[in-house]
């Protein structure tokens, strides 16, 4: 392989690493929002997921159990959000932000003992034969379980949302909880489930950070990735494959600007660091122009409290 091909391959692998935690968290939030609930606590759920995954892996010595712990802990945080917003009907925006404050603090409290400790990162599972194809083999078929899972979920969730009855009900609940309720669907229960799925995914995103990306725990290690994930859901106009596009674009621009610096690009690094954010806005503008198409996707009841008739 030529030098430039080697760098291209290496950069692509780095992009996959940077995009995967965003992809998990954003796909989870997408399902949550499809049910009509806005959960701004993604950052907090990711942190709780990250610290729990790390603790789980450290205590059991098994990284996969760690991953499960992260997912479960993220789910518990979402359950708390659900109890407040769905049962006690609190405001979703404020509750989500409070979940983040709470999650940042609680994760730091749990992680106090983990300074200077590391765990064995999740190992890669190369696909036999396919992974030996030059270039594409390494690019596509030599990853850890979570990377495969994240991409599989894009297809799985796309299929679920648009091709299954369950997906139809989820969308109906998000678009019009009143009529869904009138048709006999348990709106609150469905929203609870969607929220918990979102928490589970945010937990997986956090687990990816503390077990694979940088196998360690440190306070606030998400460094704003939960917020980017939230933005990606909007960016994706609530479609899973566009989340994939957005996450990889965001990760891609981030990594490419680092490579640009390494190659001696003569622009102040602050401006280069702005690029992922500006690119996201630009692409959103390009895809949002068709007003009618957008309205079909955006869950109509997003952020609103619903109280079923008894």
């Amino acid at each position: 392989m030529s030098d430039s091909m080697t760098i291209l391959l290496a950069a692509s692998l780095t992009i996959i690493g940077a995009a995967t935690p965003l992809l998990f968290a954003a796909l989870g939030e997408l399902i949550t929002e499809r049910s009509g609930v806005l959960n701004l606590g993604v950052e907090g759920m990711m942190l709780i997921g990250a610290v729990s995954a790390f603790a789980g892996a450290l205590i059991t010595g098994n990284t996969y159990i760690g991953v499960l712990c992260g997912a479960f802990a993220g789910m518990l945080m979402a359950l708390l959000h659900g109890y407040l917003t769905l049962t006690l009907m609190t405001n979703q925006v404020a509750t989500g932000l409070s979940i983040t404050i709470f999650g940042v603090g609680l994760s730091a409290l749990i992680g106090l003992e983990f300074v200077g400790v590391t765990v064995e990162p999740l190992s890669n599972l190369p696909v036999p034969l396919l992974s030996e194809i030059p270039f594409f083999g390494t690019l596509l078929f030599d990853h850890n379980l979570l990377v495969y899972l994240s991409v599989a979920l894009v297809f799985g969730l796309s299929f679920f949302i648009f091709k299954t009855r369950g997906g139809l009900i989820l969308r109906a609940v998000g678009d019009s909880p009143e009529s869904s309720h009138a048709l006999g669907y348990p709106v609150i229960k469905i929203r609870y489930m969607a929220l918990m799925f979102g928490g589970l995914m945010a937990g997986l995103g956090g687990a990816y950070l503390s077990l694979i990306y940088t196998p360690m725990w440190s306070e606030n290690m998400t460094a704003g990735r939960g917020w980017v994930a939230l933005a990606l859901v909007v960016f994706a106009t609530w479609k899973p494959w566009r989340v994939l596009l957005g996450a990889y674009m965001f990760g891609g621009v981030t990594i490419l600007q680092l490579h640009g610096q390494g190659f001696g690009l003569d622009i102040p690094s602050q401006f280069l660091s702005m690029l992922p954010y500006l690119a996201t806005i630009l692409v959103l503008v390009l895809i949002s122009r068709d007003r009618l198409k957008l309205r079909e996707n955006s869950p109509a009841s997003l952020g609103r409290t619903f109280r079923p008739t008894a």
């Binding site: 708390l80 509750t95 979940i99 404050i101 709470f102 603090g105 609680l106 409290l109 106090l112 306070e219």
Partner: peptide
């Protein structure tokens, strides 16, 4: 960290 947890509780 305790502050964050307590603040969260207060807001909830």
């Amino acid at each position: 960290a305790v502050t964050g947890v307590f603040q969260g509780m207060l807001l909830f």
